[in-house]
Design a binder for these strands. Structure first.
Lengths: 200, 200
DNA sequence: AAACTAACATACTAGTCGGTATGTTGGGCT
DNA sequence: AGCCCAACATACCGACTAGTATGTTAGTTT
């Protein structure tokens, strides 16, 4: 009676353990055994739910990374009044509650992109899709802000969106390499000042 | 007579082959055999010049990556009149002559940082040293520009330097994931406009 | 309750990796 | 000229990996 079979839950357990291991060690350096050791499950369970290691990696991107970026960065933009205040709020929130451990392991999206996008086209397209959706949502929000007289109409919304997304990724990368909150805060505040300069 | 023993040259051959392989596949995914196959040399030669794979990776950072960043980004800042024009010139140069292949493989410094800095402290300190020197050189150049009346004195030079370096890394990362020159150009031009806004 | 299937566990294979032990060769020094 | 050590080459080991083959158990159906 204690058994409690729950395939969907099992799949999710494997997926999240894989996500954490990959976040810490990178995809290629993560062994399936190290993932499974965190779950108490075995290879049989893993290969029942995923055809191979690559598919497991794709699922991490398609489900966990995608959802994380969407909920943190994309969806807040869709129904907000002032896009600049919205991004500033998200960034401030991240800055305040980020732990040294999180700074060290870095951003899941950025990590996987740098590691995998040049050696596996499947990873690259999936990760690029996430970035593209993010950029589009940001560009749309900026355009709406321009129409509402909240954002300077002189700027190219698409161009600014590309720059902002790139800079956020760059700030996360800076945090990872320095592990120094001051430098991370410097870079982030530089970005915040740029965002402020976009106001009308 | 054909032999031509030249240990320093041999070491350099191994080092540069390793650099190229690591740039394309990442450090952990690069096998020593794949490096050696590009050189015509063997394991004996490699282990004569480097005690282990990690030391080879450290040498790549300390010698090749360091020198590349220093010559491209740091030294031009040291003896220039206007730091903003200087950075803009470097960026424009990179934008114009970058090949699709280079965009795909990404920036050596950024790649290694994202992959290795969270799992090997030796890599992290070495890579962070490069970033720090870069940031310091940029901050100094901005300060000098402020004294000369070329750069807005309202800005915090150290903060701006941290942001600019982070954004450049972010632009390189963007290029790697999108492999779309338009998006890369958008992000870069966004950064260029920010740089322009720093003028007095 | 028997039969069947999905959901796992266990044991193993084939291959690859970093690293080592040992052999060979060439060139500078005396 | 001959010696000797640095500079390599070759062969191999033990550890580890992704993936497979097969066994076992829990639920579900009839």
């Amino acid at each position: 009676m204690t058994a409690e079979r729950n395939p969907e839950h099992t799949r999710q357990v494997i997926l999240e353990a894989a996500f954490n291991e990959v976040l810490q060690n990178g995809f290629q350096a993560t062994s399936l055994d190290s993932i499974l050791s965190k779950t108490g499950l075995t290879k049989g369970a893993l290969y029942h739910h995923f055809p191979n290691k690559t598919a497991l990696g794709y699922a991490i991107v398609d489900e966990l990374v995608f959802e994380q970026v969407a909920s943190s960065w994309v969806r807040p933009l869709n129904n907000c009044e002032n896009p600049i205040d919205c991004i500033l709020g998200i960034m401030r929130g991240h800055m305040e509650k980020v732990t040294p451990e999180e700074m060290a392991v870095g951003c899941p999206l950025n990590n996987l992109t740098q590691e995998m996008s040049s050696i596996d086209e499947g990873f690259r397209t999936r990760l690029n899709k996430i970035y593209t959706k993010w950029r589009e949502a940001l560009a749309d929000a900026l355009k709406k802000g321009q129409q509402n007289g909240l954002v300077n109409s002189d700027i190219d919304a698409g161009q600014a969106a590309a720059f902002i997304v790139a800079s956020i990724a760059g700030c996360a990368g800076t945090a990872k390499s320095t592990q120094c909150k001051k430098t991370f805060a410097d870079a982030t505040e530089g970005l915040m000042e740029y965002l402020g300069s976009l106001r009308l």
